[in-house]
Design a protein around this nucleic acid. Structure first.
Lengths: 206, 206
DNA sequence: ATTACCCAAATTGTCAACAATATAACCTGA
DNA sequence: TCAGGTTATATTGTTGACAATTTGGGTAAT
């Protein structure tokens, strides 16, 4: 039957879509997310909606007040960036160190794939895709460590940067700059020089 | 009616109890948490149970496999400590810096209260309470910054240390040591010397 | 004896109805 | 006109029943 979907992650799909709506700015700060409205919109019951909302709440995308519903969370102050940058540097270098001795061709295949898509996005000045690929690249490093705890902590930190993503970060002034930067990172990885790789990765996080 | 409870956080209470059961070691690694059994145990429907379980899953206390249920998560490798210690140092010093210029008598009242209880726990060699108060002290610093994002990130990191709490950490060899250490921290705070306070706090995180 | 297949029991995923609660409009009285 | 209380509505919190999926045992064929 066509209606039989895999459906393992129905709530995750819903959460993902709402995440995009919030990150893209389509939903403004303080906008309410009503369970019934979302249930009708996604053609599901309220159960999966509540799960997705709880997930987003834990990620800090929305704030939930008991018996009152959830709203798009106010953006954290820009000063949070000064905290998250060193945290990310510590975590991502820790992750890279943990599997650097076991780099395989498939790893570089994945990175090359990301780089290819990133190049196209940069060439087309597709800002949204560029941001997403920037995140995907760094996330791929954390995931490669194959320690779910690392990914959980990383996601908790990065999801607080949504405001920096929304309004074009100064980092993305020059369209191609971010592509070259990441291409350089992968090139350093290929040399097998651990210390140099750690430094380059660390420097790229800003 | 006595049955009318405030009930704001029914799922949170359930999650809290399950958390304790896991941290205390009453539930061993890999033990399944069945929704129906828990629902009967807590005398509630499966809805609140699912919410509590999802929360614990996000905290890393349990692992959830789709259509298969949740089990007590395997403890992360001890090496995770080498990551979390520098992360905590960065975050907690960031928090302290943010409100140091605005320290009030009520802040020291709260810390004195914690220290008093910690002293009793140490004197009685009450290991469990000592650990809890150690956490409460550091959490109070993060909370005092009044930025919910900081607390979320901090909780995500600290909840991964459950195994280090379970098996007595070497840090707690000498019963009174931890009390004196924290008393010293508060004493430094009272001098008003920011740099010295940051260093002392940072050094205490190990 | 072993492998493959199938079936049944247990468990999770989902939904619609009901109860409890907060928000907001309205009405009353000074 | 405005303060205080009250009701009405909308929304969340909870429950029990139903659908879909996984798991493990059992059976038959080789």
């Amino acid at each position: 039957m066509q209606s039989v979907k895999p459906d393992q992650g129905q709530s995750e799909q819903i959460a993902s879509q709402l995440r995009n709506d919030i990150i893209s700015g389509r939903m403004k700060e303080g906008a309410p997310l009503r369970e019934i409205a979302l249930a009708k919109q996604f053609k599901v019951g309220r159960g999966p909606i509540r799960e997705a909302l709880q997930r987003l709440s834990h990620e800090g995308m929305v704030t939930a007040k008991p018996n009152c519903g959830v709203r798009v969370a106010a953006s954290p102050p820009n000063s949070i960036q000064e905290l998250i940058i060193p945290l990310r540097r510590t975590l991502e270098t820790f992750a890279l160190r943990s599997f650097y001795h076991d780099l395989k061709p498939t790893d570089f295949q994945r990175w090359d794939d990301i780089l290819q898509r990133m190049r196209r996005a940069c060439e087309n000045c597709d800002y949204a895709s560029t941001v997403e690929l920037d995140i995907e690249f760094h996330q791929s490093i954390v995931e490669r460590a194959e320690q779910s705890d690392l990914l959980s902590i990383w996601l908790t930190m990065v999801s607080r940067l949504r405001h920096q993503f929304q309004q074009g970060h100064r980092k993305y002034d020059d369209a191609m700059k971010i592509y070259y930067e990441h291409a350089a990172i992968v090139a350093i990885f290929q040399t097998g020089d651990l210390e140099q790789s750690l430094q380059t990765l660390e420097w790229s996080i800003s």
